[in-house]
Design a protein around this nucleic acid. Structure first.
Length: 436
RNA sequence: GCCGUCGUAGCUCAGCUGGUGGAGCGGCUGACUGUUAAUCAGCAGGUCGCAGGUUCGAAUCCUGUCGACGGCGCCA
């Protein structure tokens, strides 16, 4: 049944192909209305929507009757002649010679009035919506563009574990689960394992789900998100940022080229993404604090930036911006390398998306001295014995190295101008939802 | 963890100072040969989130509880 049968894509028809030709489209009824002896059926096939007109005196009484009773979201196959017609939405329509109903849908629960709660309950059906379809296509492009860039630059994709014995980064909360009489944890980062792999593969990256058991109720947190992480030997904090700006720029270029229609549909002007190229601005944490003060904000050096601060710093930007070298008091992670020029700060960087969308990358150069790592762990009340294998990495040919984590859904949220991160993933997991 | 808002028909909501539960959309029946979320006429559809309390009487007032949504913190 697959190819042949004269089945064409609706996007091609809307692009002006097939005019005056007999073709077949198959898909789902998006809207349908009847008027005596003519039925107007708008069909969706995942590439676009087109109106088909089914007339009684053309298809016959029986097929016409069937068409006029068809409900929204029924699956259909319609054969007919493509015609340009100003009266049709989109400018083209299909004058049907044959209407065949594949499956008659029950009344579709999602109608014109929808609340956020209801759409989340019916997420398995709402994923058919134009908005989510566009977002998923954009996301697919962003992921393939990222892989393309890594491949080109000689990075090796690796597959770190999701189940782990240690809780990972200190601080954030992890999901625990039963593991043959012991407790295992769902990974909240692959970083530590990636660090182990640079000693043979030099530059590695991974794309995995990460889990955070934080009861975060914000438009930029999920409990399960897709984490694109990289770790590279011989790279310092500045070189790390070189990587990020090149990678993010490449992703923007490719999506602006391949997904113009979806981006416009989502309200994102592709030319804005085309303009995103290296280098990105790099300011220090202290510079950022000065900027906040200049904007009239009351802020104490040493505190971490929250939503309000990040928004104020980036709302007028078009390109992403790095903020580097945070104070230790703001970035607690034990593995971040101390800044030799100012020991109150660490060699790290956050990449903030423009327009107030907030942090999309967290990164740092890693501490290479075991005694420093152990001191930092003890300061945070962690037991160095739990990090024995990780500390081992510094015993056998330790090298300067850096790494980063990109929240894919955060990038998608920014690129697609989404109000909430949950729409950057088809089936969002949040503190209050893991169904459907 | 903190602050706030909301639970009434399949959906979106109205329902005032307590007195026999409403509309629009969707569905069904019928009319209509150019509709654009078609239009017109009619029909069906409810344990008012749950549990207590006040009262002759509670969707409405009180208490508790559950759930969802919005914002903050934490982070990617």
């Amino acid at each position: 049944m697959e190819p042949g049968d004269g089945v064409v894509l609706i996007s091609d028809i809307l692009g002006g192909e097939h005019v005056e030709k007999d073709v077949t489209v198959r898909g789902w009824i998006y809207r349908i209305r009847s008027s005596g002896s003519i039925v107007f059926a708008v069909v969706r096939d995942g590439t676009g929507n087109i109106q088909a007109t089914i007339k009684k005196n053309v298809v016959g009484d029986e097929e016409f009757e069937k068409a006029s009773q068809t409900l929204v979201e029924s699956s259909v196959k319609i054969t007919g002649t493509v015609a340009e017609d100003e009266r049709a939405p989109g400018g083209y329509e299909l004058k049907a010679s044959n209407f065949s109903l594949i499956h008659m849908a029950e009344p579709f629960p999602i109608t014109k009035d929808q609340s956020e709660e209801f759409l989340l309950d019916k997420r398995h059906l709402w994923v058919r919506s134009q908005k989510l379809t566009s977002v998923m296509r954009v996301k697919a492009t962003l992921l393939s563009a990222a892989r393309e860039w890594f491949e080109k630059e000689g990075w090796v994709e690796v597959t770190p574990p999701i189940l782990s014995a240690s809780a990972g980064e200190g601080g954030s909360t992890v999901f625990g689960l039963k593991y043959f009489g012991k407790t295992a944890f769902l990974a909240q980062t692959a970083q530590l394992h990636l660090e182990a792999l640079i000693f043979s593969l030099d530059k590695v990256y991974s794309l995995t789900p990460s889990f955070r058991a934080e009861k975060s109720r914000t438009p930029r947190h999920l409990t399960e998100f897709w984490h694109l992480e990289g770790e590279a030997a011989w790279v310092d904090n500045e070189g790390n940022m070189d990587v990020h700006e090149q990678l993010i720029s490449h992703m923007c270029q490719v999506v602006a080229e391949k997904n113009k229609a979806q981006l416009r549909e989502l309200g994102r002007d592709p030319t804005i993404l085309e303009a995103i190229t290296p280098p990105f601005d790099r300011i220090t944490y202290s510079d950022a604090v000065d900027m906040l003060h200049d904007k009239g904000m009351d802020f104490t050096w040493g505190d971490d930036f929250g939503t309000v601060e990040e928004r104020l710093l980036t709302e007028d930007l078009v390109s992403p911006m790095f903020v580097k070298n945070y104070p230790k008091s703001a970035k607690a992670a034990f593995y971040m390398k101390e800044n030799p020029d100012d020991t109150t700060t660490v060699l790290c960087s956050d990449l903030l998306a423009p327009e107030g969308y907030g942090e999309i990358i967290g990164a740092s150069e890693r501490e290479v001295e075991n005694h420093t790592l152990i001191d930092r762990l003890l300061e945070q009340g962690a037991d160095p014995d739990n990090y024995e294998w990780y500390l081992d990495l510094r015993k056998y040919g330790s090298v300067p190295h850096s790494g980063f984590g990109i929240g894919i859904e955060r990038v998608v949220r920014w690129i697609c101008r989404l109000d909430h991160i949950r729409d950057a993933v088809p089936f969002p997991r949040t503190p209050s939802r893991f169904y459907p």
